[in-house]
Amino acid sequence: MALFLATPRSEAKPKSEDRSWWISLFILCAILGGLFGLSFKTQNAIRHNELPSGNYAGLAQAYQVLKKSNDADRGTIGDLQLNIGKLEQALGAHPGQQQVLEDQLKGLRFQAGLTAVTGPGLIVTLNDSKKRFPDEPASVQMQYIIHDVDINQVVNELKAAGAEAIAVNDQRIIGMSPIRCAGPTIFVNNVPETPPYVIRAVGDAKTLQDAMNLAGGVVAGFSLDPAMIAVAKSDSMLLPAYQGPTESKYARPVNDLRSHSRSLSAG
């Protein structure tokens, strides 16, 4: 390294320039060190946070185990809800106040989506396009597949048009129902569903149909391939009850709103 300074430069340089290039050298070294530090840190973070992309076998096995326990849990939930229904019926055998309570409970469960319903309404079927474009890039091919946003849009429009109960394939949609893409599958109520997606909504069939056919609305959005969406009225449909978990871990009911807000402002 002593050679670096001792070797005579091939051209004479003014003194002021000598001083400044040291400084720029130091600054550049600091920048280089900074770049390396950032790279190291980000790479560490990436390794920390992302799933091990190579270990598909392990992930697949974990998925199978979870799926099995999930199905078992769903069975348990169904049994428990049946049990609850039986207990409520037994309670209703005592006349008087219990009957009033039971009627109110039935009405609430109906509104919450915990009972099967029947009625007239609309059936909207969403399906992936039959057209195939193998030469197009992925971004174009994606436009010919049904995504969770499409189902969400249809459900939202139906709700806005006054649907009283909505089901996607065999899953009843309640207030907290998620509809979400994970890879090639759409999960409704965290249950995987495959196309065609049959969305049934109980309500005034004419109003619901008009909502679908609004200018710039749902049906217009499928202009690339209109065969992806089909809308049909129905005189009578059966929608299943919501079968997912209903327990609440974080939300607690507030019985008296005034005293609750008083206690909040006091604390």
Binding site: F26, C29, A30, I31, G34, G37, K41, T42
Partner: peptide, 22 residues
């Protein structure tokens, strides 16, 4: 110069605020 590089490295590696999207 090496000290400067090490200083720059330590600055970006250990300061929690400076990150880069993955």
């Amino acid at each position: 110069a090496v000290l400067c590089a090490v200083a720059g490295f330590a600055l970006t590696y250990f300061l929690p605020g400076i990150t880069v999207p993955f």
